[in-house]
Simulated scan of single mutants.
Amino acid sequence: MYRSPFFSIITTTHLRAPLLARALRSLRAQTFQDFEVIVVADALDGDTATVCAELLREQDMFIKRCGRCGPAESRNQGMRLARGEWVMFLDDDDTFAPEHLQRTQAHISAHPEAKVLYSDFDVLNEDREKDLHAVLARTRIRLGGHPIESLHVKNFIPNNALVFHRLALEGCSVDPHLESQEDWDFLLSVCQKAMPQYYEGGGAIVHKDEVNPGLHRGTAPAATNNTVVVDFLHTYRRWRAPTPLLQAQRQQLIQSVGLSLPVAWF
């Protein structure tokens, strides 16, 4: 009889086979193995297919989808296919430390009322044109001191540091029309059902290449110019601030980039 896995891990990828291989190897190295991996590619080359053939297991899935490139639709496709009780996202350029799933599962078991969880993460700086295994700098980002309400002003939790109960995701999807902030917009949609709860000791790892910034998606013109401000405003209008204090904080943030809007707008 088929038994659903505890975790479904959705990995989006775009023609970056070496990075994808590193992400998948970090999953194969987990000390907790009750999970499925769903790799969704918005483009396909031979190297990506080879990596998936070598590193995915029988219970995993590899999907080549059609349509517009970008992680939003890939994540939506992955959520539609997910069979696990809990859902996580791991993009092809990030990884998990070997104990990450085990620590997360232990916290879930101790707190069965939780529906969305997040934890600390590491930022690893690297030079992807030279050696993916050479770490230039490593920084631990501890999130326990951040008031969770500040999510209504600006995102501070990376996608791979979150875990969602599948019931919290019902009716939620990633907006493919946003050029930036789509992770945050999606998280705010989930927050309408359940606010994320913090737990200490997670093992999510965010990899950044500051040496060759043009190699990652966040440096695309649409993600670095005034489109970011437009996407902030769009997200603010879609998900209104729940308190006057958060309204004022939103207003102050937008004022810092030169826009003056009445506080009632937020």
Score class of each variant (00 low, 15 high):
85 E>H: 03
115 K>H: 11
14 H>L: 10
215 L>P: 09
96 F>W: 05
156 F>K: 05
23 A>T: 00
195 M>Y: 12
251 Q>H: 10
47 D>T: 14
82 A>Q: 03
63 I>V: 13
5 P>I: 01
118 Y>F: 08
248 A>G: 14
14 H>N: 06
53 A>C: 09
172 C>D: 11
1 M>L: 04
128 R>H: 12
137 A>F: 05
247 Q>C: 08
235 T>R: 02
160 N>R: 08
11 T>K: 00
244 P>N: 00
60 D>H: 11
172 C>N: 11
56 L>K: 07
171 G>D: 10
56 L>R: 00
186 F>C: 09
6 F>K: 11
260 S>P: 12
135 V>C: 04
63 I>D: 04
159 N>I: 11
14 H>T: 08
72 A>V: 01
232 F>G: 00
84 G>D: 00
162 L>R: 09
67 G>T: 00
128 R>P: 06
103 R>C: 03
154 K>T: 15
32 F>M: 11
35 F>S: 01
31 T>E: 12
183 D>G: 06
86 W>E: 00
94 D>G: 07
147 P>L: 06
252 Q>H: 15
229 V>I: 13
70 G>E: 00
10 I>S: 00
239 W>V: 14
95 T>C: 12
100 H>E: 03
234 H>T: 12
152 H>F: 15
64 K>H: 15
222 A>F: 12
222 A>Y: 08
157 I>H: 08
150 S>T: 14
135 V>R: 10
70 G>L: 02
190 V>S: 00
175 D>A: 05
218 G>T: 10
138 R>L: 13
228 V>P: 02
257 V>F: 13
235 T>I: 05
111 H>T: 04
6 F>T: 09
111 H>G: 05
110 A>C: 03
184 W>H: 02
191 C>N: 09
236 Y>M: 04
213 P>M: 05
262 P>K: 11
265 W>M: 13
65 R>D: 07
73 E>L: 14
77 Q>P: 09
92 D>C: 11
144 G>S: 10
68 R>I: 15
